[in-house]
Computed example of a mutant assay.
Amino acid sequence: MSGEGRVAVVSGGAAGIGYSIAERLAADGFIVAILTRTEGAAEQAAEEIGRGGGNARGYRADVGDRAQVDAVLARIRDDLGPLSVVVANAAVAPKRPFLETTQEEWENTLRINLTGTFNLVQAGLPDLLAAGAGRVILISSSSAQRGAPQMAAYASSKGGQLAMTKALAMEFSKQGITVNTVVPSSIDTPSVAKKRAEGQLPSAEEMSKFIPVGRMGTGADIAGAVSYLASEDASYVTGQTLSVNGGSFIG
């Protein structure tokens, strides 16, 4: 699958890992539709990518709201054409002791992270099926593999993505569609830097001591994995979990 002229949608693509993914896919030749629920953020990100020579458009939508997803994908099809790649990256990551987690917090985390993935993938799949080819790439978290204290809702939602990957890969492989998950860990993003400044996380230097490759990851590291899975080189890869973590967790 060449990126040239094909449309890729990236949810949560205005900042952090999502922005790095959008930027890389644009560099690969894709026309990238960036989704975010923050007013003006997707448009600003698309402009930045455009200044770097990439082709991107920004759209506002809350992936947890199916009506918004259906409406925004209809706009994207009208503006850019049918989808070829769907990257489900949008997520929230609340941190709260399990016994203090409210049902509202639990349901909102699953609504955005897991139901949002369902909404985006199900609404985008008809384009891929019509073409007889396409890529679905989910962005999960190492929290789903090894757990995370005070993040039961987040880890559960990300674990659901891993199971969804296996099920969809089995269901759609004969239609030319691959479905895979990238699992980041120890990635130095703006949200991580914010938590570090608030004293919730140790310094990057301290964290790097526990990572075999000796450094924290970057958004570009995750984007490189997504670029591979979106390419023709990955046409025989489906139902897989690609952990991008510097060796910090083997499993």
Rank of each mutant, 00 (worst) to 15 (best):
L35E: 09
E48H: 10
D28N: 14
G52D: 14
G52P: 11
R51H: 08
V32T: 13
G53H: 02
G54L: 02
L25E: 03
L35Q: 09
E43S: 11
V32D: 13
L25Y: 10
R24P: 03
E39Q: 13
R57T: 07
R51C: 07
E48R: 09
I31R: 15
A33S: 02
A41H: 04
N55M: 13
A26K: 02
Q44R: 15
E48P: 03
I49Q: 07
A33H: 01
I31G: 07
A45G: 08
I31A: 13
T36E: 04
V32N: 12
F30R: 04
A45N: 08
F30L: 09
L25T: 03
E47R: 15
A26D: 00
G29N: 04
R24E: 12
I49S: 07
A41F: 00
E48A: 14
N55E: 12
G50E: 06
E48I: 14
G53Q: 01
R51A: 13
I49P: 06
R51Q: 13
A45H: 07
E23Y: 10
G50K: 05
G53V: 01
G40C: 10
G29W: 01
F30E: 01
E39H: 14
E43M: 08
A27Q: 15
G50H: 01
N55F: 12
T38P: 04
E47P: 03
R24A: 12
A46R: 02
A45P: 07
R24K: 14
I49M: 08
I34T: 08
R57D: 06
N55K: 12
T36G: 12
E23M: 11
A22D: 03
A42Y: 11
A27F: 06
R24H: 05
A46N: 10
G54I: 00
F30W: 09
A33Y: 00
V32P: 14
E39K: 14
F30P: 03
A41V: 03
G50A: 04
A42K: 03
G50F: 03
R24W: 05
E23K: 14
A27M: 12
A56E: 02
T38N: 10
G40P: 11
I34F: 07
G40D: 08
